[in-house]
Simulated assay, not measured.
Amino acid sequence: MSAAAQTVVRRFWKAMASNDFHVASLYLTEDFRLQWPQSGEIVEGRENFAALNTAYPASGPWTFDLRRIVGEGDQIVTEVAISDGDLHATAITFHTVRGELIALQREFWPDPFEAPEWRRGWVRLPSG
């Protein structure tokens, strides 16, 4: 993966952790698009991105734990654990970097689910 693309994506997630989403939006192109395929929503523009994240209801400050970053060229994929203290979620985000900014994010929010009973003979469940 391109060092420049990886750097801008890491800086983006660091800025998100500041909870100043207007600062985080500075890592996005003016014509940025965020796609949420699961709901069909598209956020267009860095201003809408900042406003949406600022208005998002939360129990406390958001935390962003970058667990994995992989990619090739200007295509970067991240796995990030996100929490506001009550909500605990994982986002899988596909970033397209243009120049030194993120032009597109395609983001998936997988829901946790109970392990099916039929698989219990072949899997180990985490303790806790």
Score class of each variant (00 low, 15 high):
residue 3 A to G: 06
residue 5 A to R: 01
residue 6 Q to K: 06
residue 6 Q to S: 07
residue 6 Q to V: 10
residue 7 T to L: 03
residue 8 V to N: 01
residue 9 V to W: 00
residue 9 V to K: 00
residue 9 V to G: 06
residue 11 R to W: 01
residue 12 F to P: 04
residue 12 F to M: 03
residue 13 W to C: 02
residue 14 K to G: 12
residue 15 A to P: 10
residue 16 M to Y: 07
residue 19 N to T: 12
residue 20 D to Q: 08
residue 20 D to C: 07
residue 21 F to N: 05
residue 21 F to I: 05
residue 21 F to Q: 05
residue 21 F to C: 05
residue 22 H to K: 11
residue 22 H to D: 09
residue 23 V to N: 09
residue 23 V to A: 12
residue 23 V to T: 13
residue 24 A to R: 04
residue 25 S to F: 05
residue 25 S to Q: 09
residue 26 L to W: 01
residue 26 L to G: 03
residue 26 L to N: 07
residue 27 Y to Q: 13
residue 28 L to W: 03
residue 28 L to V: 04
residue 29 T to S: 03
residue 30 E to D: 10
residue 31 D to R: 01
residue 31 D to F: 00
residue 32 F to G: 05
residue 33 R to E: 11
residue 34 L to F: 06
residue 34 L to Q: 10
residue 35 Q to F: 12
residue 38 Q to E: 15
residue 38 Q to M: 15
residue 39 S to T: 15
residue 41 E to I: 14
residue 41 E to K: 12
residue 42 I to Q: 06
residue 43 V to F: 02
residue 43 V to A: 06
residue 44 E to I: 10
residue 44 E to P: 04
residue 44 E to Q: 06
residue 46 R to H: 00
residue 46 R to Q: 01
residue 48 N to F: 00
residue 50 A to F: 03
residue 51 A to Q: 11
residue 51 A to I: 04
residue 52 L to C: 06
residue 53 N to H: 09
residue 54 T to K: 00
residue 56 Y to C: 13
residue 57 P to E: 09
residue 58 A to L: 10
residue 61 P to Y: 08
residue 66 L to W: 11
residue 67 R to T: 15
residue 69 I to E: 13
residue 70 V to Q: 07
residue 71 G to V: 07
residue 71 G to P: 05
residue 73 G to Q: 02
residue 73 G to R: 01
residue 74 D to S: 14
residue 75 Q to H: 12
residue 76 I to S: 00
residue 76 I to H: 00
residue 76 I to D: 02
residue 77 V to Q: 02
residue 78 T to M: 00
residue 79 E to Y: 03
residue 80 V to C: 08
residue 80 V to P: 04
residue 81 A to R: 07
residue 83 S to M: 06
residue 85 G to S: 10
residue 85 G to D: 14
residue 86 D to Q: 15
residue 86 D to R: 14
residue 87 L to P: 09
residue 87 L to E: 15
residue 88 H to A: 14
residue 89 A to C: 07
residue 90 T to W: 05
residue 92 I to L: 11
residue 94 F to M: 09
residue 95 H to P: 01
residue 96 T to W: 00
residue 98 R to A: 01
residue 99 G to V: 06
residue 99 G to T: 08
residue 101 L to S: 11
residue 102 I to D: 02
residue 102 I to K: 01
residue 102 I to C: 04
residue 102 I to W: 04
residue 105 Q to A: 06
residue 106 R to N: 07
residue 106 R to I: 15
residue 108 F to W: 14
residue 109 W to E: 02
residue 110 P to G: 07
residue 110 P to S: 04
residue 112 P to E: 14
residue 113 F to E: 15
residue 113 F to N: 14
residue 113 F to Q: 15
residue 114 E to D: 14
residue 114 E to Y: 05
residue 115 A to Y: 06
residue 116 P to Q: 13
residue 119 R to Y: 07
residue 121 G to Q: 14
residue 121 G to A: 13
residue 121 G to F: 09
residue 122 W to V: 14
residue 122 W to H: 09
residue 122 W to C: 08
residue 123 V to K: 03
residue 123 V to W: 02
residue 124 R to G: 12
residue 125 L to C: 10
residue 125 L to F: 13
residue 126 P to W: 06
residue 128 G to Q: 13
residue 128 G to C: 08
residue 128 G to H: 07
